[in-house]
Design a protein around this nucleic acid. Structure first.
Lengths: 207, 207
DNA sequence: ACAGGATATGACAGGGCGTCAACTTCCGGC
DNA sequence: GCCGGAAGTTGACGCCCTGTCATATCCTGT
């Protein structure tokens, strides 16, 4: 037996990870099929074959498993964002790359969710602020701060700017997914130009 | 007896309206205190003194009363938005007025909600797309379309632009509410400049 | 004053929630 | 190997919420 896989090779650890994944996957399906409102903890756990009590060994509530799903998404996206930062040398380039990456990511996720969903019901939209999302926000803001530091961008309110960028990306992204064909390049172009165009016009902070 | 008030003066109509209002007000309080998740239909109805069954004469579910609350907010804002449109003669003026009006509205609402809320718990954020919100979106988009028609703005994708503006307003608005003192003017300045500055840089539609 | 329709009431059946004592499975020490 | 105990799973249970419905109450128009 090799040493490398020791950390996760215990039977206990394995099933723990597997069960958590099974619950998350089942939850994603159930939320997609029934909507957040009508989905129950038992709908989720039933699909895994586990007992109802087991659910509560992994999550405290339906709400928490939903948060975990969202966090999972942000956690998967963050390294991509990081890569954009490292691959680009100009501020403009970073912003465009990041937005393009986000839209591609969205389109990708969209496909995998699409499969399960029955015809269009109007499910309300639930948004949570998870720790990973907080980190994404910080990463974007810090990128702006560094750009300002280096003189690559004017000295503006980085918190507002990061909030605005994320907001634009999310909303334009949603709209993009409604259209056929899904055109991530056009959407990226729109969002990027809006932000980069607006940047020089923003009010400057006192130094 | 005068004729004018007949439409709403019947006792039945009065209590109907009063009960609906009572339920909505109670719901707002309960959602603020307990969060959407843990609030129950009975928590809401208990606070009104009505019987549990009565709730279902007015709303089909907790979800629906929540939607009604959101719709109510949008419905109260829409005439303000309309007034901005009628009071302004330039596109730039309209946008600034609309955003300022929205931030003032937000700050106002914020105060009335604030009272009930116990110290910061991390409630997930629920967003619904109500009919009134849809109308707000359309109103904003149509304002853009008219501005384009008149040559007051470049020929850009009005749907994306409206989505982006609303997104920026919402997100920057949220951030604004977190800061002390709440400065609606600074937030308006930021959002307005971002959008108006970005506008000329946007990709043009083929004619 | 009265008949009839509209609305309010609260008890009730159904079911989801979260817990817990009993059980099973795994791990480390001998 | 084998055993003692820790870790994890199970499903039945009590609690509470949900949505309904027969009944009672209250308008309203005549």
């Amino acid at each position: 037996m090799s040493h490398v896989a020791v950390l996760t090779s215990g039977k206990r650890e394995q099933t723990k990870v597997a069960n958590r994944r099974a619950i998350l996957d089942a939850a994603r399906e159930v939320f997609a099929e029934l909507g957040y409102e009508s989905a129950t903890v038992r709908d989720i756990i039933r699909r895994t074959g586990l007992a109802s009590g087991t659910f509560y060994n992994y999550f405290r509530s339906r709400e928490e498993v939903f948060e975990a799903l969202a966090d999972d998404g942000a956690a998967r996206f963050r390294p991509i964002l990081r890569a954009c930062w490292e691959a680009s040398n100009s501020f403009d380039g970073y912003l465009r790359a990041a937005i393009q990456a986000y839209f591609d990511f969205l389109a990708d996720e969209h496909e995998s969710w699409q499969a399960h969903r029955p015809a269009g019901e109007r499910h309300p939209r639930m948004t949570v602020q998870t720790p990973e999302m907080e980190r994404v926000f910080e990463e974007v803001r810090d990128a702006f701060l560094m750009a300002i530091e280096r003189g690559g961008a004017p000295r503006v309110d980085a918190d507002y700017l990061a909030a605005a960028c994320i907001a634009v990306a999310r909303q334009v992204g949603d709209q993009m997914l409604e259209r056929r064909p899904i055109d991530t390049v056009a959407a990226t172009d729109f969002a990027t130009r809006l932000i980069l165009g607006g940047l020089p016009a923003l009010p400057r902070l006192a130094t």
